[in-house]
Computed example of a mutant assay.
Amino acid sequence: MFGKFAERYAKFKRYVKWLYSLYELNTQIAICEPWEKVFCHVLLGCCVSLILYASYAYVPSYCLLLISILMPISSNTNITNNMICTETEAGICSDSQSFLT
């Protein structure tokens, strides 16, 4: 049993190394020096984390709507039902609730 686990772990390790080398070759980081690789990885990590933070902090209702569309849960109410607005003759919502947040 342990041999089978070790074999699967070795196969998974080779697969992760292969994905990392594929990432390096596709982004042309493979030709950089080690300090340049670290700089590129940190820069990429910062950009991804800023995008994730901004999407969480500034557009949470859109993120929740996207999550509810991608992973529907039957116990939760549909978020789009809360965004329905009855318009008056002037074409604006009669509710004082803001639908942008």
Score class of each variant (00 low, 15 high):
R8P: 01
L65D: 06
S55W: 10
E33W: 08
Y53E: 04
V48F: 06
E87Y: 14
N78E: 12
R14Q: 12
L70W: 02
T101K: 12
L52M: 10
K13M: 05
F99N: 06
K11W: 04
K4Q: 13
P34L: 00
V59K: 03
K17R: 15
N81M: 11
R14M: 08
A54I: 01
S49I: 14
S96T: 13
T101Y: 13
S75F: 12
T27Y: 01
T101A: 04
T101H: 09
A57G: 02
C47M: 13
G3H: 03
I69V: 06
S98M: 11
L19M: 13
T101V: 14
T101M: 10
A6S: 10
I67H: 13
S75T: 10
V16C: 04
S94A: 06
T86Y: 05
W18F: 11
C46W: 14
W35K: 07
M83N: 03
Q28V: 11
Y20V: 14
A30E: 07
I67Q: 07
L44F: 06
F2D: 09
P60A: 00
S49H: 03
S61H: 15
S98R: 10
T88I: 08
L22K: 03
L22R: 09
G45H: 07
R14P: 02
Y62L: 07
A90W: 08
S49K: 12
Y58S: 01
R14C: 05
Y23C: 03
Y53Q: 05
P34F: 02
Y9S: 05
Y58H: 12
